[in-house]
Design a protein around this nucleic acid. Structure first.
Length: 360
RNA sequence: GGUAACUCAAA
């Protein structure tokens, strides 16, 4: 069908809305159009929507194949619910497609992100054929959960490696604070991409070596938005707030489109230096960016206004947030406490508990 | 014609 191709096209051009419009108006939807929409939502981080569509697909009696499962698994990863993932896994088993390498690798990664290394390893061991993606997903599982040597054993054992596998191992060393090993890999790897460089910059930043982080940033062949965000964070987290804001400005001059992480990285620099004027400018930039509301940016804004003493503005942002978690609540409550308004702080604390958010 | 793995962010 022609409209199926249209949905695919719009989804590829990352125009979710347009794709959905065509999808909704289609006279007949097949497995391809359903899967395309599910994958598009998952890619945009809209996990609930992806799962909703997946369930609707089942209700409509459309056949769910390995493509559909592999597409919905990233949404399960984002939700992080082990129960949800086990339910999907059960459906996969029932349909007898757990041997598919895309489905298997997806399951490994999803179990990792739901915090169950055991289930991940189980699926991994049972896979009749593994490819570089399956191996890399398993390595990431160990590497990101404090088991670097297990990760390294797998890494050395895997039949073939690509740049992503090298990056996964490198990131594992970084995550566990072993920057020298990360650097050793970085030097040794047969090819590097922008992610490899970004990971190293993050590693140096994490160990407090902003100087070397900057050297790598300047030396790398090309920089993407993550490179810039990492440097902004590097300065902000190492108490050089002016340089953080400087990087933010340079990024704009370089014509790089900021994303939500950019704002969430730059705002703490204003918060911690009580730079309310710059904070307001960044708030304006965010509104003008056309990026949708974001939990991280919302919390960073609340914290920025609160720490700058503009408690009213903090509350305005807080009230407009569509979703709040313990970080947003804590930022707001802390703001009132700092302001000497213990009464309002206490009241909000109770309100937070009433809304089902647990303090930590 | 649709699918899986790596790097950045808030109290």
């Amino acid at each position: 069908f022609l409209s199926t191709k249209l949905v695919v096209m719009y989804a590829k051009c990352r125009s979710l809305r347009e794709a959905r419009k065509v999808f909704d108006e289609m006279p007949q939807r097949n497995a391809v159009s359903w899967t395309t929409m599910i994958a598009a939502y998952a890619k945009h981080g809209k996990a609930e929507e992806a799962l909703k569509l997946f369930n609707e697909m089942k209700e409509n009696g459309v056949e769910i194949d390995s493509f559909s499962f592999a597409s919905v698994l990233p949404a399960c990863s984002k939700l992080g619910s082990l129960d949800q993932t086990k339910r999907v896994h059960e459906e996969i088993r029932k349909r007898g497609i757990e041997d598919n390498v895309f489905v298997g690798s997806g399951l490994v990664g999803t179990y990792v992100k739901c915090g169950s290394l055991e289930d991940a390893r189980n699926v991994f061991d049972k896979m009749p054929e593994k490819n570089v993606v399956s191996w890399t997903a398993m390595i990431t599982g160990y590497a990101q959960n404090g088991k670097v040597s297990k990760a390294r054993k797998l890494f050395d054992k895997m039949p073939e490696r690509n740049v992503v596998s090298w990056n996964a191992m490198l990131a594992g060393y970084v995550r566990n604070g072993i920057v020298d090993q990360a650097l050793r890999l970085f030097v040794k790897m047969p090819e590097r991409n922008v992610s490899s460089w970004n990971a190293m910059i993050g590693g140096f930043s994490q160990s407090g070596d902003v100087k070397t982080a900057l050297e790598f940033f300047e030396k790398m062949p090309s920089r993407d938005v993550i490179s810039w965000n990492t440097m902004i964070s590097a300065y902000a987290q190492n108490w050089d707030f002016n340089e953080a804001l400087n990087m933010y400005r340079q990024m704009q001059e370089a014509g790089v489109q900021p994303n939500s992480a950019t704002f969430a990285s730059a705002l703490p620099a204003c918060a911690n230096s009580a730079a309310v004027q710059q904070g307001k400018e960044i708030h304006d930039d965010f509104r003008r960016s056309g990026l949708g509301r974001n939990l991280f940016v919302g919390s960073a804004l609340v914290d920025m206004y609160a720490k700058c003493g503009s408690i009213e503005d903090a509350r305005k942002v807080f009230d407009k947030m569509p979703e709040r978690n313990v970080v947003s609540w804590t930022a707001m409550i802390g703001g009132y406490a700092m302001n000497g308004n213990g009464k309002e702080a206490l009241q909000l604390f109770k309100e937070m508990q009433r809304s089902g958010v647990k303090p930590n």
